[in-house]
Structure formats: C-alpha cells, structure tokens
C-alpha cells in the first residue's frame, strides 16, 4: 500500500545550524567584538539558563506533553533560595533549597500528569499560575539581593578558560542526550510520546516514567534559577517568566516535533544557541532590541516552515 522508502532524518537542525554559522561569519566580519572571549562569556550565561530549561522541555515534549510552569518554578526556587540566604544557609544550603523546591514543584506536576493521568497542558497551566502566585506571595512581590559571594562567584568562575556555567549546561546536555537515546527510561518516554495507548498495551511503566520526566524538568528549573540568581545577584518571583517561550521555541527550532515521539537533543542545543547568538550579534550590529525580538521570532517561523517544506517536498517526490 505504502512505499518502502525510509523517512529522511529531520533536516531542521542542519538548516538552523547552517543559518547560524552564516550569521556568525557575517557578524564576525562586521563587528570586531563578536569573536572575543569577553563577549562569549557574557553570552553563554543566560544561554545556559535557558538551555537547561530547554533540555528538560525536550524530554517533556518528546512524551507528547508540555510544561508551561517552568517560569513559575524558576521564580519559586529563586525566592526559596533568597529565603535560605536570609536564614544564613550558606552557598550549599541555598543551592540545595533551590533544587529541592524545583524538584518538588516538578514532582507535583508529575503526580498530577503521570499518576493521576491529567492533561499536561492543563495541569501545568494551573501550576504555572499557582506556583507563580506562591512565589509572589512568599516574597511579597519584592526582590532580594543579599546572596553570599560564594554563590555569586558561580557566574564568573571558569575551568581552564571555559565558564563553569557553560560546562554545567554541556554536561547536562550530554546526560540528557544519552538518557533519551540509550536509557530504558528514555525509550519509555519516546514510546509514550509516539502512542500512549500502545505503550500502555505494551505494559510499560508509564506513570513512573512521566512522573520522572516532570520531576527532572523541575530540577533543571531549580538549577537554572541558581545560575540566574548568581548572574543577577538578586531573586524575584517573576524572574523566570520569559524563559518559557524561549525554551519551547529553542526545542522546536531544534527539530523536536511538537506532537512528541522524538527528541533531538543536539538540535535543542543548536536551537537555544541560535536565540542567544543571534540576539548578541544583532546587538553588536546596533539593531534595536525590539526588532531583535521580531527577527528572532521570525527566524523560528522561517526555520520550521522551511523544514516543513523540505520534508513535504521530499515525501511528495
């Protein structure tokens, strides 16, 4: 009935990567500041924060779900970190608090979605408002700035010249890549994303796998909130809100299908890098911030649209 040719690998990460390389070459030619260590050190810090969220989101989207509450979890973790700092908890104590709260929030999502079987988009819409509300309530809407220097040092620390923040991002990326591709858990997640019914009929442990993926996403948000606190030297309830859309856009730009069933971790890394490198380059070229927003969003539409056209062109041929 149907042809026997294999579906080609998604060309999307390649398209995006090629566009990114061209862009880098162009900016490097036009601006001498682009290829400097100082510029890249500034660039990778916010990129690593968004990148961690996007890596978690890659796994979540691969299961056919979505997590809208990431921004609120980051806010709540940061506020919790501030609370720990106020109680003189020390850098380790603060870090543990942020991770614990992040993981806890993720586990709540996991419980409602994985164990009770409620719809991911609805649950995380609710917890987004709920966690966000909690963060605002606990912090009374104020920002906090009394973090110890040992924690703030995280943002400018480096290891043989490579920023530690970037190393954390890359290590997590490798971990997520291996988990998605070779671990039993990763297989379960992808099967669930492809066909929830068939996964259930195959006696796969879906509930615990889903619980795990949302908990991991919460942990990554906790970690991202720490990096953010270290970079900005302050914590606020709404500090993570912008990352939700950036993270989803990064995942999609990287070629992971929004409907689930596949995960392209290297694509996500390229996708997130694109957002921050292009933003940085446009700033160096003197393009106003507002136009940058529009251009980067336009790039998302262009890349996804182009990849769609390439794919349908190939199947029609």
């Amino acid at each position: 009935m149907t042809g026997t040719r294999h579906r080609p690998e998604l060309p999307q990460p390649l398209v995006v990567g090629a566009l990114l390389a061209l862009f880098c070459a162009y900016v490097g030619w036009r601006s001498g500041d682009f290829w400097t260590a100082a510029n890249w050190q500034l660039l990778v810090q916010p990129m690593a924060e968004a990148g961690l969220v996007a890596l978690g989101m890659t796994l979540v989207i691969a299961t056919g779900g979505i997590d809208l509450s990431v921004g609120s979890i980051i806010g709540l973790s940061a506020v919790a970190a501030a609370w720990a700092a106020q109680h003189h908890a020390g850098a380790t104590g603060i870090a543990l608090t942020a991770l614990l709260i992040g993981g806890g929030c993720g586990a709540c999502n996991g419980l409602l979605i994985g164990v009770l079987g409620l719809s991911p988009i609805l649950v995380t819409l609710g917890t987004m408002i709920f966690f966000g509300g909690l963060a605002v309530t606990v912090s009374a809407g104020a920002s906090f700035a009394g973090f110890p220097d040992t924690l703030l040092h995280l943002s400018d620390a480096d290891w043989v010249g490579v920023p530690v923040v970037f190393l954390i991002f890359i290590l997590v990326a490798v971990g997520v890549y291996l988990a998605a591709r070779y671990s039993l858990w990763g297989r379960y997640l992808l099967h669930q994303g492809q066909s929830p019914v068939a996964a259930r009929f195959s006696a796969m442990p879906i509930r615990s796998s889903l619980f795990g993926v949302y908990t991991v996403q919460g942990l990554f948000c906790g970690l991202a909130s720490l990096l953010m606190v270290a970079r900005l030297a302050s914590a606020r309830a709404d500090m993570g809100q912008a990352l939700l859309l950036t993270a989803i856009a990064g995942v999609v730009l990287g070629g992971t299908p929004v409907m689930g069933g596949a995960a392209t971790v290297p694509g996500t890394v390229i996708g997130i890098a694109t957002f921050y490198v292009v933003g940085n380059g446009l700033t160096l070229l003197g393009v106003p911030t507002f136009v940058q927003t529009a251009l980067v969003a336009g790039l998302l539409l262009f890349a996804v649209g182009l990849a769609n056209q390439l794919r349908s062109g190939r199947t029609a041929a």
Binding site: L245, I248, A249, V252, F290, T293, A294, A297, G298, L300
Partner: peptide, 11 residues
C-alpha cells in the same frame, strides 16, 4: 508563539 514575538517586537 512566533507571531507573539513578531507582533510585539514590531509594535
């Protein structure tokens, strides 16, 4: 999501 950014940025 894309037009969210494009519309807002242009505005």
């Amino acid at each position: 999501l894309g037009t969210l950014g494009v519309y807002r940025g242009l505005l």
